[in-house]
Design a binder for these strands. Structure first.
Lengths: 260, 260
DNA sequence: AAGTGGTCTAGACCACCGA
DNA sequence: CGGTGGTCTAGACCACTTA
């Protein structure tokens, strides 16, 4: 079926919906069917040949439409298996913030860690909560301060929690410009796949303030970072305290798949 | 040119690079050329027909390859114009944080704004810096507190800066569950395309602490939010102060286009 | 072996931009 | 007007999964 050459349909498209293409209408129809429950979450979408004949579209157009649903996070496709509905479109994740790990940790340039202490410990309830790990799990705790070149005041007070198995990076922690995740990647080949940040405010405790050379009880940023690796296991975690004005967290979200 | 049927090439692909397709090799070649400076940032990529003949690929394959570069944020395409290099790929933006505006503002559920004061002002240097706008620009400043249902302590002290032209939302600001961006969308049809967040720590000033019912000089989160609309103009900005423990900022970055 | 999604070609019309 | 990227068709081979 070729409607591209059809002057009536072509004109109609121009007047009624100038920017709505066939694959977009098709995608919108699929989205509606998923929202309505015709294709419940977990079930398979009809295979491409069937969609082609159902909607009288070429396979390329069908694929373009389904690709849009993949981008929206509604379905996932597997070669040899099919296309599965994985979300109900209620709240599509239409805003994205993109960076590289390098950008995210650009503040580390020209800084190094001074190690204040280290010890092995097992997670009690409080720590398990902070690190989002199981009770009784074993971690190497390293207390540090991050210093900037040519500046006597440290940037932050950071407690690192390193997963057992990666303790070998300890001798290299003090090196310049080497965030923990990169040390783990260099020495063990484990790449970060998932980074979680939780930012809160706190009143800087006196013993930490002494290290940071700031007022005790003055306000600071409290940043928990959780690094998860390729196999979903935690590589390391860190709890950082930044005095006011020495650090900020900046994020920029942008709309992605244009309209609709 | 059809290499799909070529047993030699097919076998070679299987042995040497089992998962590398033609459009991926083509994309990798473009990336290399952009990184090397053959195509500097700001210049145009060759048009599709030329890429087709240069690489001996069909147009579909070329488009698939260029699409990958678009996803990586290296180039942007404009119909009628061409494909422009917009980034040097030095650090590919391989980590993304995805949410919806609804999720981002889920803390607004069950809260409303109490308006403490309002006035028109023009941006001096300090304000222009906070709002990232031009000097002398006119804004409607609305000072508010956000209250939660059944809780007497307010969640935050928020100063809104509303772009001239959207002042009509003022009577609706106090409504339940209505973030500013949604009011602007409902009343003026302008959608948010870009949201920037800057989080710092501060010592809560006494006059704000009185409203927030917290200790003067106690630590708090200082969050600047900038909402930009479809045409790159600012819709509104807000400066919020949250007492310690009443709010946190949580972000989750994930690796996206798998390998490499 | 049959069916799935992934890649690829060849050729076409379209909307948009700039000269 | 010619050139750009955007959409579309028809038909093909491929890798992968399941039975």
């Amino acid at each position: 079926m070729n409607t591209q050459n059809d002057p009536v349909l072509s004109d109609l498209r121009k007047r009624i919906a100038p920017s709505t293409t066939r694959y977009e209408m098709f995608a919108a129809s699929l989205v509606a069917d998923i929202e309505s429950g015709k294709y419940p979450v977990g079930c398979m979408l009809p295979a491409e040949p069937e969609l082609c004949s159902q909607y009288a579209l070429s396979r390329h157009t069908v694929r373009e439409g389904v690709r849009k649903l993949v981008e929206m996070g509604l379905v996932s496709r597997q070669r040899g298996i099919g296309t599965r509905v994985i979300s109900k479109a209620v709240g599509p994740n239409d805003f994205t913030a993109s960076t590289s790990l390098e950008t995210l940790f650009s503040y580390i340039d020209g800084t190094w860690l001074k190690i204040l202490g280290e010890k092995w410990l097992t997670a009690d309830e409080k720590l398990a909560n902070i690190l989002d790990c199981k009770l009784g799990q074993s971690w190497l705790e390293v207390t540090t301060c991050r210093y900037q070149q040519n500046i006597s005041q440290p940037l932050s007070h950071t407690v690192l929690y390193i997963a057992p198995g990666f303790a070998g990076i300890l001798p290299h922690l003090g090196e310049l410009n080497h965030p923990v995740y990169r040390l783990i990647e260099e020495h063990y080949g484990h790449k970060v796949r998932d980074l979680q940040l939780v930012v809160t405010a706190l009143s800087i405790p006196p013993e930490v303030a002494a290290w940071l050379q700031c007022e005790p009880q003055s306000p600071g940023l409290h940043v928990v970072r959780r690094y998860r690796g390729t196999n979903d296991s935690y590589l390391s975690n860190s709890v950082s305290i930044y005095p006011q004005t020495r650090f900020d967290v900046s994020i920029r979200y942008q709309l992605n798949w244009s309209g609709s």
